[in-house]
Amino acid sequence: MFGIYGVNGQIFSGRLEQLPDVRQVGRRRAVDAIGTAGAELGDAAARVLPESRRAASAAYRRMLHIDEERGPLVHARQIMRPQVLALAAADEVARAWRLLVERRIRQAPVLGRDGGLVGIVSEHDLLVALDPERGTAGAVMAQRVADVMTSPVVAADPLTDIRYIARVMLERGVDGVPIVDERQALVGFVSRGDLLRAVVADPPLSLWR
């Protein structure tokens, strides 16, 4: 399940298939999927997977001594970072820049006065804001995060399939997705790096089910 959050609160809540009906989120051009990317997301894919591939997959799992009872890693809560650096919309750009550099991260969710998700600010957003043609660096640094952040922003709940999150990143051209619970409270963050680490470090992840 996905949601879209902006300065006025939640704008949308629904399934992945409904997201295209909502206006594009994010400032960069969306990345085109490769070939028929996403076709594997349906449950029917498991039934049409060639026997040779199933046999090869089973042999690979036996070789790695994978615990079948552990099951595939598929939910956002299993790979998200629960300790999230969040900025306030009222924070100065200078503070946002300093924290991103100190924490060595490239983006951070932005919260409004009530603690709800209202946007996301990235290294890209800050570099664009520091464009000399828009004013002196000092003036930009004194601006508020709300002035430079990307909003609205797509978020997902903790039980969202990470393959769907990866698809949103590709189609919407974003590098991360905040994770919010049923109370719309920020509980984690999934970045491209988190997805790559899950694929590389956790063989039980099944990409083809």
Rank of each mutant, 00 (worst) to 15 (best):
F2K: 01
F2L: 06
I4M: 09
Y5W: 14
V7N: 05
N8G: 10
G9L: 08
G9R: 05
Q10H: 05
I11C: 06
F12K: 04
S13F: 14
G14E: 12
G14N: 06
G14S: 08
L19P: 02
P20V: 09
P20A: 11
P20S: 09
D21C: 07
D21Y: 12
Q24N: 10
R27P: 02
R29F: 05
R29E: 14
A30Q: 03
A33I: 15
A37G: 06
E40Q: 10
L41N: 07
G42I: 11
A46G: 10
R47K: 11
L49D: 08
P50S: 07
S52E: 15
S52H: 14
R53F: 09
R53N: 07
A59F: 13
Y60Q: 11
R61D: 13
R62M: 14
M63P: 03
H65I: 13
I66H: 05
I66W: 08
D67K: 07
D67I: 14
G71T: 12
P72K: 02
L73G: 01
V74H: 07
Q78N: 06
Q78L: 04
M80T: 02
R81I: 07
R81V: 11
Q83L: 13
V84I: 06
A88L: 13
A90L: 07
E92G: 10
E92V: 12
R95E: 12
A96W: 02
R98L: 15
R103F: 10
A108F: 03
A108R: 03
A108D: 01
P109M: 04
P109V: 03
V110T: 03
R113Q: 14
R113F: 09
R113S: 08
D114K: 07
D114T: 15
V118E: 00
V118N: 02
V118F: 01
S122D: 00
E123I: 04
E123S: 09
D125M: 03
L127R: 15
L127I: 13
V128W: 06
A129D: 01
D131E: 12
E133Y: 09
R134Q: 13
R134A: 11
R134N: 10
T136S: 12
T136Y: 06
T136V: 04
A139Q: 11
V140W: 00
V140A: 05
M141C: 09
A142T: 08
A142E: 13
A142K: 14
Q143W: 13
Q143D: 08
Q143Y: 08
A146C: 13
A146V: 14
D147V: 08
T150N: 06
V154F: 04
V154G: 00
D157T: 15
D157V: 13
L159M: 11
I162A: 00
R163D: 02
R163C: 02
Y164V: 02
A166G: 06
R167P: 00
M169E: 01
M169A: 01
L170Q: 05
V180M: 00
D181Y: 03
R183I: 03
R183Y: 04
R183M: 11
A185F: 03
V187P: 00
G188T: 02
R197A: 12
R197H: 12
V199L: 15
V200K: 10
A201I: 07
P203N: 08
P204K: 03
W208Q: 09
W208T: 12
R209G: 15
